[in-house]
Design a protein around this nucleic acid. Sequence first.
DNA 1: GCCCATTTGTACGTATGTATG
DNA 2: GCATACATACGTACAAATGGG
Lengths: 82, 82
Amino acid sequence: MITHGARVTIDYEGETPLWRQLAEILRGQIAAGEYGHGARLPSDTTLVQQYGLARGTVRKAIDALVTDGLVRRVQGRGTFVV
Amino acid sequence: MITHGARVTIDYEGETPLWRQLAEILRGQIAAGEYGHGARLPSDTTLVQQYGLARGTVRKAIDALVTDGLVRRVQGRGTFVV
DNA sequence: GCCCATTTGTACGTATGTATG
DNA sequence: GCATACATACGTACAAATGGG
Protein backbone atom coordinates (compact mmCIF):
# COMPACT_ATOMS: atom_id res chain seq x y z
CA MET A 1 0.00 0.00 0.00
CA ILE A 2 3.01 2.22 0.14
CA THR A 3 3.26 4.58 -2.77
CA HIS A 4 6.35 6.61 -3.49
CA GLY A 5 7.34 6.97 0.12
CA ALA A 6 3.97 7.91 1.51
CA ARG A 7 3.41 5.95 4.71
CA VAL A 8 -0.31 6.40 4.64
CA THR A 9 -2.38 6.00 1.55
CA ILE A 10 -5.18 7.92 -0.01
CA ASP A 11 -8.45 6.10 -0.51
CA TYR A 12 -9.63 7.12 -3.94
CA GLU A 13 -12.92 5.27 -3.62
CA GLY A 14 -14.12 6.43 -0.22
CA GLU A 15 -16.47 9.28 0.44
CA THR A 16 -13.95 11.51 2.15
CA PRO A 17 -12.53 14.11 -0.22
CA LEU A 18 -8.92 13.50 -1.21
CA TRP A 19 -7.81 16.92 -0.02
CA ARG A 20 -9.32 16.26 3.39
CA GLN A 21 -7.64 12.88 3.63
CA LEU A 22 -4.28 14.46 2.90
CA ALA A 23 -4.94 17.26 5.36
CA GLU A 24 -5.64 14.67 8.05
CA ILE A 25 -2.51 12.73 7.20
CA LEU A 26 -0.36 15.84 7.50
CA ARG A 27 -2.15 16.95 10.64
CA GLY A 28 -1.45 13.55 12.15
CA GLN A 29 2.21 13.70 11.24
CA ILE A 30 2.56 17.12 12.79
CA ALA A 31 0.74 16.01 15.91
CA ALA A 32 3.02 12.96 16.06
CA GLY A 33 6.03 15.22 16.02
CA GLU A 34 7.32 14.07 12.67
CA TYR A 35 7.41 17.73 11.78
CA GLY A 36 8.31 19.79 14.78
CA HIS A 37 8.05 23.50 15.34
CA GLY A 38 9.69 25.34 12.46
CA ALA A 39 10.15 22.22 10.40
CA ARG A 40 9.54 22.40 6.70
CA LEU A 41 6.83 20.24 5.19
CA PRO A 42 7.44 18.46 1.89
CA SER A 43 6.97 20.75 -1.09
CA ASP A 44 3.81 20.75 -3.17
CA THR A 45 5.63 18.84 -5.88
CA THR A 46 6.87 16.20 -3.47
CA LEU A 47 3.42 15.64 -2.03
CA VAL A 48 1.99 15.45 -5.53
CA GLN A 49 4.42 12.66 -6.33
CA GLN A 50 4.10 10.89 -2.99
CA TYR A 51 0.32 10.75 -2.93
CA GLY A 52 -0.52 10.84 -6.61
CA LEU A 53 -2.70 13.92 -6.36
CA ALA A 54 -3.00 17.05 -8.43
CA ARG A 55 -1.23 20.10 -7.11
CA GLY A 56 -4.51 21.91 -6.66
CA THR A 57 -5.69 19.14 -4.39
CA VAL A 58 -2.47 19.22 -2.38
CA ARG A 59 -2.71 22.97 -1.99
CA LYS A 60 -6.31 22.75 -0.85
CA ALA A 61 -5.24 20.29 1.83
CA ILE A 62 -2.51 22.60 3.06
CA ASP A 63 -4.89 25.55 2.83
CA ALA A 64 -6.88 23.88 5.58
CA LEU A 65 -3.81 23.65 7.80
CA VAL A 66 -2.96 27.27 7.11
CA THR A 67 -6.47 28.35 8.03
CA ASP A 68 -6.11 26.40 11.27
CA GLY A 69 -2.87 28.23 11.94
CA LEU A 70 -0.96 24.96 11.99
CA VAL A 71 1.46 25.87 9.24
CA ARG A 72 2.63 28.94 7.40
CA ARG A 73 3.61 29.22 3.75
CA VAL A 74 6.48 31.34 2.53
CA GLN A 75 6.78 31.91 -1.19
CA GLY A 76 10.09 30.70 -2.51
CA ARG A 77 10.97 28.87 0.69
CA GLY A 78 8.38 26.36 1.72
CA THR A 79 5.68 25.52 4.22
CA PHE A 80 6.63 25.54 7.88
CA VAL A 81 5.08 24.26 11.05
CA VAL A 82 4.06 27.12 13.30
CA MET B 1 -16.52 51.12 -15.78
CA ILE B 2 -19.57 48.95 -15.87
CA THR B 3 -19.03 45.44 -17.14
CA HIS B 4 -21.86 42.99 -17.48
CA GLY B 5 -23.72 44.43 -14.52
CA ALA B 6 -20.76 44.58 -12.20
CA ARG B 7 -20.69 47.99 -10.57
CA VAL B 8 -17.04 47.79 -9.71
CA THR B 9 -14.42 46.52 -12.05
CA ILE B 10 -11.47 44.21 -11.74
CA ASP B 11 -8.07 45.64 -12.52
CA TYR B 12 -6.30 42.98 -14.53
CA GLU B 13 -3.04 44.89 -14.66
CA GLY B 14 -2.58 45.87 -11.03
CA GLU B 15 -0.58 43.99 -8.47
CA THR B 16 -3.51 42.92 -6.35
CA PRO B 17 -4.60 39.36 -7.11
CA LEU B 18 -7.91 39.11 -8.94
CA TRP B 19 -9.42 36.86 -6.28
CA ARG B 20 -8.56 39.39 -3.60
CA GLN B 21 -10.05 42.23 -5.58
CA LEU B 22 -13.31 40.33 -5.94
CA ALA B 23 -13.28 39.42 -2.27
CA GLU B 24 -12.93 43.11 -1.39
CA ILE B 25 -15.74 44.06 -3.75
CA LEU B 26 -18.09 41.53 -2.19
CA ARG B 27 -16.98 42.46 1.31
CA GLY B 28 -17.75 46.07 0.51
CA GLN B 29 -21.18 45.26 -0.84
CA ILE B 30 -22.02 43.25 2.23
CA ALA B 31 -20.76 46.01 4.49
CA ALA B 32 -22.83 48.50 2.50
CA GLY B 33 -25.90 46.44 3.16
CA GLU B 34 -26.46 45.45 -0.44
CA TYR B 35 -26.61 41.92 0.84
CA GLY B 36 -28.20 41.82 4.25
CA HIS B 37 -28.24 39.08 6.82
CA GLY B 38 -29.42 35.85 5.20
CA ALA B 39 -29.30 37.28 1.70
CA ARG B 40 -28.02 35.10 -1.09
CA LEU B 41 -24.97 36.21 -2.98
CA PRO B 42 -24.83 35.81 -6.76
CA SER B 43 -23.96 32.28 -7.81
CA ASP B 44 -20.48 31.28 -8.87
CA THR B 45 -21.61 31.25 -12.47
CA THR B 46 -23.13 34.71 -12.24
CA LEU B 47 -19.98 36.17 -10.72
CA VAL B 48 -17.91 34.46 -13.39
CA GLN B 49 -19.97 36.19 -16.06
CA GLN B 50 -20.18 39.55 -14.29
CA TYR B 51 -16.48 39.90 -13.60
CA GLY B 52 -14.97 37.83 -16.37
CA LEU B 53 -13.06 35.54 -14.04
CA ALA B 54 -12.55 31.80 -13.93
CA ARG B 55 -14.74 29.91 -11.52
CA GLY B 56 -11.73 28.84 -9.51
CA THR B 57 -10.82 32.47 -9.00
CA VAL B 58 -14.36 33.33 -7.93
CA ARG B 59 -14.43 30.46 -5.48
CA LYS B 60 -11.09 31.48 -3.99
CA ALA B 61 -12.51 34.95 -3.39
CA ILE B 62 -15.56 33.55 -1.63
CA ASP B 63 -13.35 31.13 0.27
CA ALA B 64 -11.81 34.15 1.94
CA LEU B 65 -15.21 35.41 3.03
CA VAL B 66 -16.14 31.97 4.31
CA THR B 67 -12.93 31.81 6.33
CA ASP B 68 -13.77 35.19 7.78
CA GLY B 69 -17.18 33.88 8.74
CA LEU B 70 -18.87 36.49 6.59
CA VAL B 71 -20.79 34.07 4.42
CA ARG B 72 -21.78 30.44 4.41
CA ARG B 73 -22.04 28.13 1.43
CA VAL B 74 -24.78 25.55 1.07
CA GLN B 75 -24.42 23.00 -1.69
CA GLY B 76 -27.34 23.08 -4.05
CA ARG B 77 -28.72 26.33 -2.63
CA GLY B 78 -26.20 29.12 -2.70
CA THR B 79 -23.94 31.35 -0.65
CA PHE B 80 -25.58 33.31 2.15
CA VAL B 81 -24.58 36.22 4.31
CA VAL B 82 -24.16 35.16 7.91
C1' DG C 1 25.32 41.34 -9.91
C1' DC C 2 23.60 37.35 -12.56
C1' DC C 3 21.87 32.89 -13.60
C1' DC C 4 19.47 28.87 -12.07
C1' DA C 5 16.75 25.57 -9.49
C1' DT C 6 13.26 25.25 -6.21
C1' DT C 7 8.96 26.54 -4.14
C1' DT C 8 4.88 28.96 -3.39
C1' DG C 9 1.20 32.12 -5.74
C1' DT C 10 -2.09 33.17 -9.23
C1' DA C 11 -5.22 32.13 -12.99
C1' DC C 12 -7.00 29.70 -16.46
C1' DG C 13 -9.85 25.64 -18.35
C1' DT C 14 -12.48 21.13 -18.09
C1' DA C 15 -15.09 17.39 -16.25
C1' DT C 16 -17.87 15.10 -13.06
C1' DG C 17 -20.25 14.49 -8.54
C1' DT C 18 -23.62 15.90 -5.00
C1' DA C 19 -27.42 18.49 -3.01
C1' DT C 20 -31.48 21.35 -3.42
C1' DG C 21 -35.87 22.70 -5.08
C1' DG D 1 -36.99 14.26 -14.14
C1' DC D 2 -34.77 18.58 -14.55
C1' DA D 3 -32.34 22.89 -13.79
C1' DT D 4 -29.50 25.27 -10.65
C1' DA D 5 -25.67 25.72 -7.48
C1' DC D 6 -21.95 24.31 -4.85
C1' DA D 7 -17.96 20.50 -4.31
C1' DT D 8 -14.24 17.91 -5.88
C1' DA D 9 -10.40 16.85 -8.88
C1' DC D 10 -7.80 16.94 -12.71
C1' DG D 11 -4.51 19.49 -15.86
C1' DT D 12 -1.67 23.57 -17.68
C1' DA D 13 0.92 27.80 -17.67
C1' DC D 14 3.24 31.54 -15.97
C1' DA D 15 4.61 34.86 -12.13
C1' DA D 16 7.14 35.95 -7.95
C1' DA D 17 10.20 35.06 -4.18
C1' DT D 18 14.15 32.70 -2.22
C1' DG D 19 18.68 30.86 -1.96
C1' DG D 20 22.92 28.85 -3.82
C1' DG D 21 26.70 29.04 -6.99
